[in-house]
Amino acid sequence: MDETPKKIKVDSVNRNTLSKQVVENIIQLLVSGQMKPGEKLPTEMELMEILNVSRPVLREALSSLESLGVIHRKTREGTFFNNKISSHPFSIMLSLAHDNLQALVEARMALELGLITMAAEKISDEELKRLKQTIDEIANNKDSNYSEADLEFHRIIALSANNPIVEGMIDTLIVTLVKINSEIKFREPERTIQHHTAIYQALEKRDPFEAFHQMFLHLDYVRHKVLKEYPKMPPLDK
């Protein structure tokens, strides 16, 4: 009788998976109502015991939550949920999906396409001037290192929508942009300038329909470029 042990195969639990689980569990404290915005979290030792994880895993999770604006740390006082979490409705969802690039790209599209139509009706002459300056910065950049100017272009548009309800979402949008930009392996300044100029001209005409159209063309181009290159995602058909 063959008593050779049966070989089994299971996926190992890596540190990133544990860290994400910790993020989800801490956020659940808010979702379930066990804790409220502004309240102090248990100490690191208490959280390690409650969650049954090591200090490096816990600290990695806390760093993720802090970078997303869900928590903040006070020297000698501890770690607290932010008081204004309710004004950042996407922060929690972003923290849960921070490694899902496709979800981040789609969330960016949904938010920016809404903001651009409001911006077309509200953007000021001064904001248009600053928008044009970012395009000039990209055109004058010699080494294709223009991510800051690119980021500022989108930030100006988002803020020009001038809506207090969506204002809290803009910080989350910027975090999303930084993540997406970090995945771009090569830059095409000519294409960026072309897209940004078309968006600028639509905003200058105060045309929300054209502004929406040009922003969609730009974001759709970025979506295909980023996800096609992203190793965890299957190539997209054009």
Rank of each mutant, 00 (worst) to 15 (best):
P37G: 14
Q28C: 08
P37Q: 10
E126T: 10
A161I: 02
K179P: 00
H224L: 02
R59Q: 14
E204A: 09
I157K: 01
K179Q: 08
F186I: 04
L203S: 07
N140W: 04
S32D: 15
K84S: 11
A149V: 03
Q214T: 08
E183A: 11
E24N: 14
S87R: 13
R108K: 14
M109I: 09
L131A: 00
D143F: 10
E77T: 01
M93F: 15
A120G: 05
H154D: 01
T75Q: 12
R55N: 10
Y146F: 13
D207K: 03
Q34C: 04
T117W: 00
D220L: 03
M233A: 07
L94S: 13
M35G: 08
F153V: 03
R55S: 14
I8G: 07
N14F: 11
M35C: 05
K36T: 08
A202C: 02
N25R: 15
L65I: 04
L101Q: 12
L96M: 15
E152Y: 04
K132Y: 12
K225C: 01
P37S: 13
N140S: 08
Y221Q: 06
A161Q: 04
S95D: 05
N16C: 06
K36I: 03
E167S: 09
Q201T: 02
Y221K: 06
R15T: 14
K232T: 02
R76T: 11
N82R: 15
K9H: 13
L30E: 05
K36L: 14
R76C: 03
A110P: 00
T4D: 11
T4M: 09
Q21E: 15
S160Y: 02
H224M: 01
G69Q: 00
I116Q: 08
E190I: 07
T176Q: 11
S63C: 05
I193M: 10
E188N: 14
T75F: 14
L96N: 10
V22L: 10
E121C: 02
G33S: 05
M118S: 12
R187K: 13
E60A: 12
V222E: 02
E188H: 10
H213M: 05
K40A: 13
S144N: 11
L173S: 06
